[in-house]
Write a protein that binds this DNA or RNA. Structure first.
Lengths: 241, 241
DNA sequence: GCCGATTTGTCCGTATGTATC
DNA sequence: CGATACATACGGACAAATCGG
């Protein structure tokens, strides 16, 4: 938990927006006011506001002020957003998440794997297949590839709990960046075997390459979601052309 | 095209990374070096680097340096990323995009529409249905709702070209923020009527609420994509817990 | 282990530009 | 026109992490 001043301000403003201390479309106090309120420099206030802007919470308007454009979202499905473990996502979506390990193996990357995952050929990887349950219903099928040298000592036992807890807690790895691609793909035999898709013949597929704070890619994951329980959210800002 | 100094530096570094002047996993010059190279302050360099970090191009490492973690992506499908018009996306994906307007109507928002789109009940909207072709093949079906008072004078003729060109060019609107949700949904009768989905019974659906620089939501769009020609990309960074 | 040099991270105060009212 | 508000930029200071001697 960072104790940086800008982060404190960011969290404080974020909560005020979420709890409607400032209502939708209302202006926040000016930067000058916030400087006085928080007893810091203008740069620091601006940094907090920049993060809220990136989150889609506020919109700064040149010469006018900063407007609250946040609206709460209904959480009907299983919402995916930032980098989160399944455990964290389950908690945020207020569901009980459990995991069943279907496969756990050590493999050597060949050319096909290199092309798909970004791991160099010849490198030793853990390959793990896991089935994810929400409130007892199997909804997500994960195929994980972990770089063995970066993530030593992985066991099926750990995989059935939270690998991220192990990485961040026990190994002290800092997870930093995740590049994700989202596609819609036909169901496979494995999907059908474990997940009741009713009449869907597709799944929502997130593939991600995850990096630690040394810029080393230690994970490639393909996460296949039941369409009825999948929702991906995003805020984009337009770049000038 | 902003002529801000940090933006120049950002673009310059971005191009150097893309053209592999710095190769994958290589360190960029230190901030101090960049300051000398560009003749600016350290803050300005840092701002450019912050944007590259958000793009997933580099990863700064405390006490060590800034590492290039960019890898070119193969463009097999139709890649969706930031806020773009169909025209812009087509060009970026190197495809010829054309548009057929299926419906063009003025409607008044009722409660159902309010709940779905975020436009208040009673407000006057343009409703537009458009079929998008890539290289002559129909692949995307768009349902647009535009706030009439914010986007006056829209015509089917404009809708068959680029509405964004009209908004930004003729009307002088600045498009700023877009909140998007991505789901996988069953095909509808309309989908099937216009798009050849082969044996897919799902589509990739992006719904977006778009705001101008006054924080006014002027657009709600549901964009339904053929699975074979859909790919959404994203870079996430992990927040400390 | 310690120290100093280097590098990134945070924060401040100030100045100037530009848009709005 | 002046006052207010956000945008950009500079230079400096200190902290924290890393690395080499």
């Amino acid at each position: 938990m960072p104790k940086a001043k800008y982060d404190q301000i960011y969290r404080d403003l974020k909560e005020k927006i979420e709890t409607e201390v400032y209502s939708y479309q209302e202006m926040l106090p000016s930067e000058h006011m916030l400087v006085r309120e928080y007893g810091c420099s203008r740069n620091t206030v601006r940094r907090a506001l920049a993060e809220l802007t990136a989150d889609g919470y506020v919109q700064p308007m040149h010469g006018k002020g900063v407007r609250n454009i946040f609206r709460p979202v209904e959480q009907a499905a299983f919402t995916v957003g930032g980098i989160e473990s399944f455990k964290e996502s389950s908690a945020r979506n207020k569901r009980k998440g459990t995991t069943q390990v279907l496969q756990f193996a050590e493999i050597i990357a060949d050319e096909k794997i290199e092309k798909r995952t970004g791991f160099r050929k010849g490198i030793c990887l853990y390959y793990i297949q896991r089935l994810r349950f929400l409130n007892g219903i199997p909804l997500i099928l994960d195929h994980n590839y972990f770089l063995k040298e970066a993530v030593p000592g992985l066991t099926p036992e750990i995989a059935s709990q939270s690998i991220y807890d192990y990485l961040e807690g026990t190994l002290g790895i800092t997870i930093t960046t995740s590049k994700r691609t989202l596609t819609v793909e036909h169901v496979t035999q494995i999907d059908e075997k474990y997940i009741d898709l009713k009449d869907y013949n597709c799944m929502a597929v997130i593939t991600s390459q995850t990096f630690d704070d040394n810029g080393i890619q230690f994970e490639y994951t393909q996460s296949r979601h039941h369409p009825d329980f999948f929702r991906f959210q995003d805020v984009a800002t337009r770049k000038t052309h």
